[in-house]
Amino acid sequence: MNLIETRKLSRWYGMADGVHGLALVVPQGSMCLLLGGSGAGKSTATKVLMNLLRPSEGEALVLGVDSRRLGPGEFAQIGYLAEDQTPPMHLTVREWLNDCRPFYPTWDGGLEQMLLKQFALPLDRKLRLISRGMRVKAALLTVLAFRPKLVVLDEPFAGLEPPVVAECVRGLATVAAAGDCTVLAAVSEVGEFEPLATRVALLDQGRLRLNESVEDLRARFRQVEVKGAEAHAGPAADWLEWEDTRERVRFVEPLYEGEVTERAWRERFPGAAVAAQAMTLREIHLSMMRAGRVVKKAEAA
């Protein structure tokens, strides 16, 4: 079952496209990263999903409900946290938690205490008097403490110190691990989400370029280094980041298929030593960003 599913979803602002023809799928229990640079349409997409913006065309189903019809019943199961949200600055952390608690029948006091301890939040200080990192942690707590079925994050940790981000992601992981929680995180880089992510969607200029499981992605991307290749036929069309020095050739293979692909390499680089290394999600993302293009499995096929 997909907790999020969009069909030809578009949202434009006057003449400018926010997102265009988006067909995003987030299966239940997955941790999906919606990757994209600045202006890629991540925020527009998440805002449409949360009914903060109305789609100009197409539709988005969230928890099986049209995003335009999301009501209290659905929001009681959704935790949403965005970078540009305005928390109630005049409240203390305790007051904010007290305000949020009655809205959620599933609020877990034990989890709240655990996260409070984990985040080391100062309960009696007003939000305007604590650091941004603390505020984000407090906001994350209000989003996680009711054990949401779906968590939607929109660049919530942008600009925060890496240890703070790590702490937040750890909190998120705790909740995700404990229950049946699906996460969609719109971020510009993989960062601390690397170990949690199970699925990746890549947005570029409002268009979805990729929507694949991390497992598949990792399986088909390889960092390849070739030594002693004196004569070769140049790069194949799909390879990314081709780099040819006299001593060695380096490139990223986006369509690695085991023995078949390795045989193709040997034929292209006869007598050379070819070493292939699995890549991290971050490396794959950066590689595609640097290359300025995305190679999909289906496209190659």
């Binding site: 949360m50 903060l52 209290p72 019943g73 659905e74 305005t86 906001a139």
Partner: peptide, 15 residues
């Protein structure tokens, strides 16, 4: 706007 925190809390417009 889209920034208000209450908008994604379980409160309906009528409530």
């Amino acid at each position: 706007g889209t920034r208000a925190e209450w908008m994604t809390r379980p409160i309906s417009g009528g409530q």
